[in-house]
Design a protein around this nucleic acid. Structure first.
Lengths: 337, 337
DNA sequence: TTGTATGCGTTATCAG
DNA sequence: CTGATAACGCATACAA
């Protein structure tokens, strides 16, 4: 009952055809084949079609490895982030790959999991693979490993090293809008939750904006720092230590969702007793937790700007790349405020 | 105030050092350098250290492109899925890349967005790049394009072509468990929501299991088909047409979350009036929507098995690869049932 | 308009 | 134990 495997007429021999094979079939020289492949120089119409037919017949695919070796360019970019599993990075990487592909670049994916050793290994791997550029938003502190001579690098929401361009959302404005919204809604005891301040990231501006806005409104700022694995514990502590808390600005939507959960556990009504606002506003979060108010990052625009700057650098236009780009955020007011 | 850029002592010239450069510095032949690089053949201890020092000094990185060209192997695998933005694919791709990396393979990322034209382009791109293998779970129907002579391919939850191995969760068992749970909880009017049946995917077994289980319990199965863009509309229709519905088995958690939302809009209490169960159980869903009961796929195990089969094929062990692998699911009972 | 020869950086073969 | 040489598949300078 198994369907028999029909003999493919495409390619009798099992080795991949190369330019020389195409040339032989078409009755021309390898150079000519290369010419029709790249539309370079003058070629007769008849020879062109002859060659194209030969390529069809042999099911020929150009070998980009050999080509890369010769032209000294791979059209490969490395993309290093903690994990595609996270909705923000997943969506960001989707757009990065998508835009890169539309410009002829291919994406080598690296999930560093926030581990410095992995990140360094990936960096070496990418260099061995002769990538044309690197996009990263992955690690803890500045790494001199990112100072690679003549290898363009762009950071997303992370300062990678001196002189490495960074693209991010307008974190200060986002932090201000989030905090001010809670204030406007009458919250008096507003707490901020953020990642460790030791991470040198533009996202720290969210915290600064929070603190500034609190002070401008004669309120006392209070920030809790969380890591990746201690979020639940810290949030419990937050509630234990601050029974009067009536507003929380979480630096991302995952943390915000954990706050909502803990509030539910404690029978604290949202939003009458406690208002919560997050940050990111990914598609997935909007879908699964639409009731969460949040500051939405312009993820697609961040990706576009990042690729634009990277490719500008790859092409040697180093003159007019700005070191820091901040894109506008959008306040999404929903049911938790 | 700008910090001055300290002259790097690593590499004065701006061109990447190659084996010949290392050889020159170490005072040996390129062959010898290659030998210490690959630990091949016999090498004197002194020459080895001499060479290693030279590599350090020049900050030498082997050129994997050139190496690939010679050894006829790239250690590259192509990964084609609709989008990393989706929590299920994001998590799956994370594990795939992670495991591949641990085995020395690099991942070329392709987001096909469910579009056949994009998928075909990616397939060509991957072949031009001489990938050693392809993992895909991306498209609508079988494509003969996946029948590539001597290029290993493994599908995840998708039948790609005859003779292409597939790895998936045990969809039939998952569908049975989900449906039976609703039945056990007393639901009489259980509706199933699934993707178009025209997709030739093992996930269709979820539907079959639902239908079989319903009949075994003397209930009438009723399935609504949704695409990517019409989910909200179809779900509204479902409620309009079935006022007595008291149970919904959605074929993924995103759909399930939309059902929950619509139920809320209509003031239908969950779970007393309506019970809902989804499918996937990704980290993100569990985090953002923990109240949702679901059938959890063993995503990491799926990734492991997929890579195992792919690499087995890459290594030419074609004998004992099974065409279809189904991994066990886990019922997560939460608050929506 | 087309063909010949060379080299991209690496490794394997074979000789010393 | 080490070195010279050819070849992987391709694209360019140069020749015809």
């Amino acid at each position: 009952m198994k369907p028999r495997i029909t003999d493919s007429t495409k390619n009798a021999s099992n080795t991949k055809p190369k330019i020389a094979d195409v040339a032989k079939v078409a009755g021309v020289s390898p150079t000519t084949v290369s010419r029709v492949l790249n539309n370079r120089g003058y070629i007769g119409e008849k020879t062109r079609t002859k060659v194209q037919q030969a390529m069809e017949q042999l099911n020929y695919f150009p070998n980009d490895i050999a080509r890369s070796l010769f032209i000294q360019k791979t059209y490969l970019i490395g993309v290093i982030f903690p994990t595609t599993s996270n909705p923000f990075y997943g969506q960001l990487i989707f757009h990065l790959e998508n835009i890169a592909a539309s410009m002829g670049y291919k994406t080598l994916l690296c999930n560093s999991q926030g581990r410095e050793d992995k990140e360094k290994n990936y960096l070496k791997m990418l260099q061995r693979n002769q990538v044309d550029g690197i996009i990263a938003g992955a690690h803890n502190r500045r790494m001199e490993e990112y100072d690679i001579p003549s290898l363009p690098v762009v950071g997303v929401d992370r300062y990678l090293s001196e002189n490495t361009p960074v693209v991010s959302s307008d974190n200060y404005d986002g932090g201000t809008q989030a905090t001010q919204l809670l204030v406007n809604k009458g919250c008096k005891h507003i707490i901020h939750i953020n990642g460790p301040i030791s991470l040198e990231t533009p996202a720290n501006l969210r915290r600064k904006a929070y603190e500034d806005t609190m002070r401008e409104n004669d309120l006392t700022p209070h920030t809790y720092e969380v890591g990746l694995d201690d979020q639940e514990k810290i949030i419990e502590k937050l509630f234990d230590e601050n029974p009067r808390v009536d507003g929380v600005f979480a630096s991302d939507d995952i943390i915000a969702s954990r706050v909502l959960r803990e509030a539910k556990n404690r029978n604290i009504d949202i939003p009458s007793k406690l208002k919560v606002i997050g940050y990111d506003g990914t598609e997935t979060t909007r879908l699964l937790l639409p009731e969460l108010s949040t500051i939405q990052q312009p993820i697609k625009e961040i990706a576009e700007k990042t690729i634009e700057i990277l490719i500008k650098q790859i092409n040697g236009d180093n003159g007019d790349v700005q070191l820091e780009t901040m894109l506008p955020v959008t306040l999404i007011e929903s049911e938790t405020t």
